[in-house]
Simulated scan of single mutants.
Amino acid sequence: MYNTRWWDIAVAAGLAAIAALSLAGLGASGPSGWWLTAASLLVFVGGYAFLRPGIVTGAAPTWRLAVGIPLVVLAIVIGIAAAPFLAMLQTLAYPLVWVTTPARREAIVGSAGVAAATFVGFLLNGAFSSEAMWSGLLTAGVSLVFAVSLGLWISAIAEYGEDRARLVAELTDAQEQVERLSRERGAADERERLGRDIHDTLAQTLAGLTLLSERAGRQLARGETDAAAGTIATVEQLSRDALAEARGLVARTAAVPGDAVLEAAVERLAERFRAEAGLVVQVEVALEGDDGMTRDAQLVVLRCLQEALSNVRKHAGGASVRVIVEADASGIRLVVVDDGRGFDPDRRRTGYGLDGMADRVALAGGTLTIDTTPDRGTVLTVALPIATPPLSSLPEEQNA
């Protein structure tokens, strides 16, 4: 609890000052008085030696207290019996008792022992006279009250400091735990975002390449070399698109990295699905000054359109799709209408596409609505605010 070096210095300096002042005439006179003074100081040193280990730990072992405190008490009795001036030993005894005892009750009992030794010393010095008794009572009583009051006050301050230190340690542990959980949540969200991007880009493109490759194989088997060559050329173009998409994922850029104009990107995506699935894709783009549209808003629109067209190709079984992209000062709207078989929107889905699209739109602050019933086709609508939050600057819990 405390540095014993400073205690060693304080006790040595205090005893040396008492010895010096005693020799200067403030203490006992005559050889017998000097011997008693020396004996008192030596006994006090012995008591300090027993109590000293408790200064570091905050509480000396019981057996050391049982030896050390009686030696200190005995030193005070001997010293005051030789000369009342040696009541100065109380200034060292009281703090030593409070520092080395384990609890307040033991400290108060030890302090009472020091006060009793002071009273006995005065009685012995004054040959049990009434004057000596009153001097002893006054000195012991005042010193005991002062020592106990000061000890309780300092103990309360020390306990308060320990409580504060414990609370700080608990808060530090809690902050570290929150930081660790935040990193884990951020990593999980990043994995989810990456999975969504891969599904909406590379997975869709690879699925298209598979269909086109199968078509080219069938065309070659039938001897339709010209048609197969055209299909293979489309495969080559889609492969380049897949490479561009992979680079875009690495750089966290838009799905069409080299095209900053939404209308051109939508048309390019529609042309790709015309080639892949033979769909009739009608595109209507009405943008009123898309210069104010963020790159991330374009990315959300293109990802949702890509997923919608892919669902038409894989599940709807339709022949035509109408794509409407509108933007004005209030926001952006994407509408995809197909003539396919439709589905029950309340039925549990096993795929990831629509759920991933809903997550992407929600992160952008928009809404996704699906109007469909079996055998009636599907109308998918995505509405985004014009100021879509940057995907690269989402809060930590969404984009670590």
Rank of each mutant, 00 (worst) to 15 (best):
Y2N: 12
A16R: 13
I18H: 06
A24T: 12
G25W: 05
S32C: 10
I55T: 11
T57K: 11
G58W: 15
A60I: 06
T62W: 13
R64V: 00
R64G: 04
V67D: 03
I69D: 01
P70S: 07
L71K: 02
L71R: 01
Q90E: 06
Q90V: 09
T100H: 14
I108Y: 02
G113P: 06
T118K: 01
N125T: 06
S129R: 12
E131Q: 14
A132Y: 11
G136K: 02
V142K: 00
F146C: 13
A147G: 04
S149N: 09
G151E: 05
L152Q: 09
A156Y: 14
A158E: 13
E159F: 00
A165D: 14
L167I: 11
V178P: 04
E184N: 06
A187S: 08
T210I: 10
A216I: 03
T225P: 05
G230R: 05
A233G: 05
V235M: 13
L238D: 00
S239M: 11
S239K: 01
A260P: 15
A264L: 03
V266C: 12
L269H: 03
L269A: 00
F273A: 12
V280C: 04
Q282I: 14
G289S: 05
D296Q: 08
L305E: 07
L309F: 14
N311R: 10
K314Q: 04
A319S: 13
R322V: 09
D346Y: 00
G353E: 06
A383G: 05
S393W: 09
